[in-house]
Protein backbone atom coordinates (compact mmCIF):
# COMPACT_ATOMS: atom_id res chain seq x y z
CA UNK A 1 0.00 0.00 0.00
CA UNK A 2 1.90 3.06 -1.16
CA UNK A 3 -0.02 5.67 0.89
CA UNK A 4 -0.39 5.03 4.60
CA UNK A 5 -2.48 7.23 6.86
CA UNK A 6 -1.68 6.16 10.43
CA UNK A 7 -3.60 7.69 13.33
CA UNK A 8 -1.28 6.72 16.17
CA UNK A 9 2.42 7.25 16.64
CA UNK A 10 2.99 3.50 16.94
CA UNK A 11 1.37 2.93 13.56
CA UNK A 12 3.35 5.75 12.03
CA UNK A 13 6.65 4.48 13.37
CA UNK A 14 5.86 0.96 12.20
CA UNK A 15 5.06 2.30 8.76
CA UNK A 16 8.41 4.05 8.66
CA UNK A 17 10.14 0.85 9.77
CA UNK A 18 8.51 -1.03 6.92
CA UNK A 19 9.94 1.41 4.40
CA UNK A 20 12.58 3.62 5.98
CA UNK A 21 12.83 5.71 2.83
CA UNK A 22 9.12 6.41 2.68
CA UNK A 23 8.17 9.98 1.90
CA UNK A 24 6.84 11.63 5.03
CA UNK A 25 3.90 13.84 4.19
CA UNK A 26 2.48 16.30 6.69
CA UNK A 27 0.87 19.46 5.29
CA UNK A 28 2.30 18.80 1.83
CA UNK A 29 3.11 22.46 1.32
CA UNK A 30 6.75 21.75 0.49
CA UNK A 31 6.59 18.13 -0.60
CA UNK A 32 3.72 18.36 -3.05
CA UNK A 33 5.40 21.28 -4.81
CA UNK A 34 8.19 18.88 -5.68
CA UNK A 35 5.84 16.07 -6.62
CA UNK A 36 3.80 18.36 -8.88
CA UNK A 37 6.97 19.52 -10.62
CA UNK A 38 8.10 15.94 -11.20
CA UNK A 39 11.12 16.37 -8.95
CA UNK A 40 9.91 13.66 -6.61
CA UNK A 41 8.13 10.47 -7.57
CA UNK A 42 7.02 8.83 -4.35
CA UNK A 43 6.54 5.09 -4.19
CA UNK A 44 5.63 4.93 -0.51
CA UNK A 45 4.12 7.77 1.50
CA UNK A 46 3.51 7.99 5.24
CA UNK A 47 0.95 10.68 5.98
CA UNK A 48 1.45 12.03 9.49
CA UNK A 49 -1.08 14.80 9.84
CA UNK A 50 -3.66 12.57 11.44
CA UNK A 51 -1.37 11.01 14.04
CA UNK A 52 -3.06 12.17 17.24
CA UNK A 53 0.17 12.52 19.25
CA UNK A 54 1.60 14.73 16.51
CA UNK A 55 -1.50 16.85 16.17
CA UNK A 56 -1.53 18.14 19.76
CA UNK A 57 0.61 20.27 22.04
CA UNK A 58 1.22 20.31 25.79
CA UNK A 59 2.53 22.95 28.14
CA UNK A 60 4.68 21.86 31.07
CA UNK A 61 4.73 24.82 33.49
CA UNK A 62 7.28 23.16 35.75
CA UNK A 63 9.82 22.59 33.02
CA UNK A 64 8.64 25.80 31.31
CA UNK A 65 8.45 24.08 27.93
CA UNK A 66 5.85 23.59 25.28
CA UNK A 67 5.92 20.33 23.38
CA UNK A 68 4.37 21.02 20.00
CA UNK A 69 3.39 18.01 17.91
CA UNK A 70 5.12 17.99 14.55
CA UNK A 71 1.80 18.10 12.70
CA UNK A 72 0.53 21.21 14.49
CA UNK A 73 -0.17 23.81 11.80
CA UNK A 74 0.94 27.41 11.59
CA UNK A 75 -2.69 28.46 11.88
CA UNK A 76 -2.81 26.72 15.27
CA UNK A 77 0.42 28.41 16.39
CA UNK A 78 -1.27 31.74 15.69
CA UNK A 79 -4.01 31.11 18.24
CA UNK A 80 -3.76 31.74 21.98
CA UNK A 81 -2.73 30.28 24.33
CA UNK A 82 0.11 28.97 22.14
CA UNK A 83 0.58 32.42 20.64
CA UNK A 84 0.79 33.89 24.14
CA UNK A 85 3.35 31.36 25.33
CA UNK A 86 5.50 31.67 22.22
CA UNK A 87 4.79 35.09 20.68
CA UNK A 88 7.76 35.07 18.31
CA UNK A 89 6.62 31.74 16.88
CA UNK A 90 3.17 33.23 16.34
CA UNK A 91 4.69 36.24 14.60
CA UNK A 92 6.74 33.96 12.39
CA UNK A 93 3.71 31.82 11.64
CA UNK A 94 1.74 34.82 10.44
CA UNK A 95 4.37 35.37 7.74
CA UNK A 96 4.18 31.82 6.38
CA UNK A 97 2.73 31.70 2.88
CA UNK A 98 -0.98 32.38 2.80
CA UNK A 99 -3.93 31.42 5.00
CA UNK A 100 -4.26 28.26 2.91
CA UNK A 101 -0.61 27.37 3.53
CA UNK A 102 -0.90 28.12 7.25
CA UNK A 103 -3.90 25.79 7.52
CA UNK A 104 -1.91 22.91 6.07
CA UNK A 105 1.76 23.59 6.73
CA UNK A 106 3.26 22.27 9.96
CA UNK A 107 6.15 23.09 12.22
CA UNK A 108 7.45 19.55 11.76
CA UNK A 109 7.38 20.06 8.03
CA UNK A 110 9.35 23.28 8.42
CA UNK A 111 12.00 21.30 10.30
CA UNK A 112 11.88 18.37 7.92
CA UNK A 113 12.39 20.55 4.86
CA UNK A 114 15.03 22.60 6.68
CA UNK A 115 15.14 25.41 4.15
CA UNK A 116 17.35 28.33 5.21
CA UNK A 117 14.26 30.43 4.53
CA UNK A 118 12.03 28.33 6.80
CA UNK A 119 10.00 30.92 8.66
CA UNK A 120 9.65 29.09 11.96
CA UNK A 121 13.23 27.96 12.24
CA UNK A 122 14.93 31.14 13.52
CA UNK A 123 12.49 31.15 16.41
CA UNK A 124 13.19 27.51 17.25
CA UNK A 125 16.89 28.28 17.06
CA UNK A 126 16.71 31.38 19.24
CA UNK A 127 14.71 29.48 21.84
CA UNK A 128 17.08 26.47 21.83
CA UNK A 129 14.31 24.06 20.92
CA UNK A 130 14.77 20.32 21.09
CA UNK A 131 13.62 17.90 18.39
CA UNK A 132 12.40 14.45 19.42
CA UNK A 133 12.75 11.77 16.75
CA UNK A 134 10.96 8.44 16.93
CA UNK A 135 11.62 5.09 15.34
CA UNK A 136 10.96 1.49 16.23
CA UNK A 137 14.23 1.72 18.18
CA UNK A 138 12.65 4.31 20.47
CA UNK A 139 12.81 8.08 20.81
CA UNK A 140 15.92 10.21 20.73
CA UNK A 141 16.14 13.95 21.11
CA UNK A 142 18.61 16.45 19.80
CA UNK A 143 19.02 20.17 19.91
CA UNK A 144 17.56 21.98 16.93
CA UNK A 145 21.06 23.32 16.24
CA UNK A 146 22.34 19.78 15.74
CA UNK A 147 19.24 18.78 13.84
CA UNK A 148 19.65 21.43 11.14
CA UNK A 149 22.69 20.27 9.19
CA UNK A 150 22.65 22.33 6.00
CA UNK A 151 20.57 23.49 3.06
CA UNK A 152 17.58 21.16 3.19
CA UNK A 153 19.65 18.63 5.15
CA UNK A 154 18.84 17.36 8.63
CA UNK A 155 20.12 14.76 11.11
CA UNK A 156 16.97 12.67 10.68
CA UNK A 157 17.89 9.09 9.85
CA UNK A 158 15.93 6.86 7.47
CA UNK A 159 13.01 5.33 9.32
CA UNK A 160 12.79 8.18 11.81
CA UNK A 161 9.91 10.56 12.29
CA UNK A 162 10.04 14.06 13.71
CA UNK A 163 7.34 13.70 16.32
CA UNK A 164 7.39 17.11 17.96
CA UNK A 165 9.49 20.06 18.91
CA UNK A 166 10.01 21.05 22.53
CA UNK A 167 10.31 24.78 22.97
CA UNK A 168 11.40 26.54 26.18
CA UNK A 169 9.12 29.30 27.41
CA UNK A 170 11.33 32.25 28.29
CA UNK A 171 10.59 35.20 30.51
CA UNK A 172 11.32 38.21 28.39
CA UNK A 173 10.45 39.96 25.18
CA UNK A 174 10.70 38.03 21.96
CA UNK A 175 10.00 39.00 18.40
CA UNK A 176 10.48 38.02 14.82
CA UNK A 177 10.95 39.98 11.62
CA UNK A 178 11.10 38.91 7.98
CA UNK A 179 12.05 40.81 4.87
CA UNK A 180 10.36 39.95 1.59
CA UNK A 181 9.70 41.98 -1.55
CA UNK A 182 5.95 41.55 -1.30
CA UNK A 183 3.65 42.46 1.58
CA UNK A 184 2.20 38.94 1.81
CA UNK A 185 2.94 35.40 0.64
CA UNK A 186 6.64 35.80 0.07
CA UNK A 187 9.85 33.87 0.60
CA UNK A 188 12.16 35.45 3.14
CA UNK A 189 15.18 37.38 1.94
CA UNK A 190 16.30 37.75 5.54
CA UNK A 191 14.74 36.81 8.87
CA UNK A 192 15.69 37.41 12.46
CA UNK A 193 14.41 36.42 15.86
CA UNK A 194 15.43 38.15 19.06
CA UNK A 195 14.49 36.47 22.31
CA UNK A 196 15.31 37.93 25.70
CA UNK A 197 15.65 35.65 28.70
CA UNK A 198 15.53 37.81 31.80
CA UNK A 199 16.18 34.81 34.05
CA UNK A 200 19.64 34.31 32.57
CA UNK A 201 20.07 37.95 31.53
CA UNK A 202 20.71 36.87 27.97
CA UNK A 203 19.69 38.03 24.53
CA UNK A 204 19.39 35.46 21.74
CA UNK A 205 19.60 36.29 18.07
CA UNK A 206 18.97 33.79 15.29
CA UNK A 207 19.00 34.73 11.61
CA UNK A 208 17.69 32.98 8.51
CA UNK A 209 18.00 33.09 4.73
CA UNK A 210 21.58 34.28 5.12
CA UNK A 211 23.46 31.01 5.33
CA UNK A 212 23.11 27.32 4.57
CA UNK A 213 20.89 27.01 7.59
CA UNK A 214 19.74 29.13 10.53
CA UNK A 215 22.60 30.92 12.24
CA UNK A 216 22.95 31.99 15.88
CA UNK A 217 24.93 35.17 16.36
CA UNK A 218 27.10 34.37 19.38
CA UNK A 219 29.15 37.57 19.33
CA UNK A 220 26.13 39.79 19.00
CA UNK A 221 24.42 37.90 21.82
CA UNK A 222 27.42 38.19 24.13
CA UNK A 223 27.74 41.85 23.33
CA UNK A 224 24.07 42.52 24.00
CA UNK A 225 24.09 40.69 27.31
CA UNK A 226 26.73 43.09 28.53
CA UNK A 227 25.49 46.24 26.81
CA UNK A 228 21.78 46.39 27.59
CA UNK A 229 20.06 47.21 30.87
CA UNK A 230 17.55 44.43 31.46
CA UNK A 231 15.91 46.11 34.41
CA UNK A 232 15.39 49.43 32.65
CA UNK A 233 14.60 47.82 29.28
CA UNK A 234 17.11 50.14 27.76
CA UNK A 235 19.90 50.02 25.24
CA UNK A 236 21.98 52.90 24.00
CA UNK A 237 21.93 53.93 20.37
CA UNK A 238 25.57 52.85 20.17
CA UNK A 239 24.73 49.46 21.61
CA UNK A 240 21.95 48.95 19.07
CA UNK A 241 24.31 49.96 16.27
CA UNK A 242 27.04 47.59 17.44
CA UNK A 243 24.56 44.74 17.85
CA UNK A 244 23.43 45.28 14.27
CA UNK A 245 27.01 45.27 12.99
CA UNK A 246 27.79 42.03 14.79
CA UNK A 247 24.58 40.46 13.48
CA UNK A 248 25.39 41.44 9.91
CA UNK A 249 28.92 40.14 10.34
CA UNK A 250 27.56 36.79 11.47
CA UNK A 251 25.59 36.31 8.26
CA UNK A 252 26.93 34.30 5.34
CA UNK A 253 24.52 35.17 2.53
CA UNK A 254 24.85 34.37 -1.13
CA UNK A 255 23.76 36.23 -4.26
CA UNK A 256 20.75 34.74 -5.96
CA UNK A 257 17.85 35.89 -8.10
CA UNK A 258 15.91 36.94 -5.03
CA UNK A 259 18.49 39.31 -3.59
CA UNK A 260 22.17 40.05 -3.45
CA UNK A 261 24.35 38.93 -0.59
CA UNK A 262 25.05 42.59 0.16
CA UNK A 263 21.35 43.34 0.53
CA UNK A 264 20.73 40.34 2.74
CA UNK A 265 23.62 41.25 5.02
CA UNK A 266 22.44 44.82 5.20
CA UNK A 267 18.90 43.69 5.98
CA UNK A 268 20.08 41.50 8.85
CA UNK A 269 21.71 44.55 10.41
CA UNK A 270 18.52 46.58 10.08
CA UNK A 271 16.33 43.81 11.47
CA UNK A 272 18.69 43.17 14.36
CA UNK A 273 18.76 46.83 15.33
CA UNK A 274 15.00 47.23 15.09
CA UNK A 275 14.29 44.05 17.05
CA UNK A 276 16.76 44.97 19.77
CA UNK A 277 15.10 48.37 20.04
CA UNK A 278 11.69 46.72 20.34
CA UNK A 279 13.10 44.51 23.09
CA UNK A 280 14.75 47.42 24.87
CA UNK A 281 12.62 50.43 23.96
CA UNK A 282 14.38 52.92 26.18
CA UNK A 283 17.57 54.68 25.15
Amino acid sequence: MPVLVPTTLDEAVSAMAADPDAMVLAGGTDTMVEVNAGHRRPSCVVVVNRVSEMRSWTYDPVAATVRIGAAVTYAELLEPPLATLLPALAEASRTVGSPQIRHAGTLGGNLGTCSPAGDGLPVLSALDAVVPLASTAGERSMSVHDFMVGVKRTAREPGELITAVTVPVLSGWQGYAKVGVRNAMVIALATACVAVDTASASVRLAIGSVGPTILRCAQAEAFAASAVDFAASSASADAVRRFAELAAAASHPIDDHRASAAYRRHAIGVLASRLLRRAFPNE
Binding site: E91, R94, G175, A177, K178, G180, N183, V186, V270
Partner: peptide, 13 residues
Protein backbone atom coordinates in the same frame (compact mmCIF):
# COMPACT_ATOMS: atom_id res chain seq x y z
CA UNK B 1 1.68 45.69 10.85
CA UNK B 2 -0.16 44.85 7.64
CA UNK B 3 -0.52 48.59 7.04
CA UNK B 4 3.24 49.14 6.86
CA UNK B 5 5.78 48.19 4.20
CA UNK B 6 6.90 44.66 5.02
CA UNK B 7 3.44 43.63 6.17
CA UNK B 8 3.28 40.64 8.49
CA UNK B 9 7.07 40.55 8.43
CA UNK B 10 7.01 43.34 11.07
CA UNK B 11 10.12 44.82 9.57
CA UNK B 12 9.38 48.40 10.48
CA UNK B 13 7.64 50.67 12.91
Amino acid sequence: PMRLPGGAGRTAD
